[in-house]
Simulated scan of single mutants.
Amino acid sequence: MTALVVQDLRKSFGGVEAAKGITFTVAESELLALIGPNGAGKSTCFNMLNGQLKPDSGSIKLFGQEIVGKRPREVWRMGVGRTFQITATFGSMTVIENVQMALLSHHRRLRAMIPFAGDLYRDEAWELLELVGMADQAGRACGTLAYGDLKRLELAIALANQPRVLLMDEPTAGMAPRERVQLMQLTADIVRARGVSVLFTEHDMDVVFTHADRVMVLNRGELIAQGSPQEVRNNSDVQSIYLGSGALYGAEPAMEASA
Rank of each mutant, 00 (worst) to 15 (best):
L34S: 09
C45N: 03
Q100S: 14
A18G: 08
L31P: 00
S57D: 12
F90W: 05
L153P: 07
G148L: 08
P72M: 04
I22H: 07
V99I: 04
L218V: 10
D123H: 12
S12M: 12
G143C: 10
M216Q: 13
I22N: 08
L128G: 05
R77F: 05
W126R: 07
Q226L: 00
L34C: 07
D189Q: 09
H106W: 09
P171T: 09
I67L: 06
A138Q: 10
G51L: 00
I190S: 04
Y147K: 00
T210Q: 08
A193W: 01
D204I: 02
M175K: 05
E202S: 09
G64Q: 02
M134C: 15
G250N: 02
N50M: 08
V26A: 10
L166S: 03
G14H: 13
I157Y: 06
V215R: 01
A33C: 09
G195I: 00
V26S: 11
H203W: 14
W126M: 12
G227H: 02
V68E: 06
V232S: 03
E256L: 08
P163K: 13
R178F: 15
T87K: 10
C142T: 04
I35V: 15
I60A: 05
D8T: 09
R140S: 11
A18R: 05
T187W: 10
Q162H: 14
M101A: 14
D8C: 07
R220D: 01
I86D: 15
Q226P: 01
R73V: 14
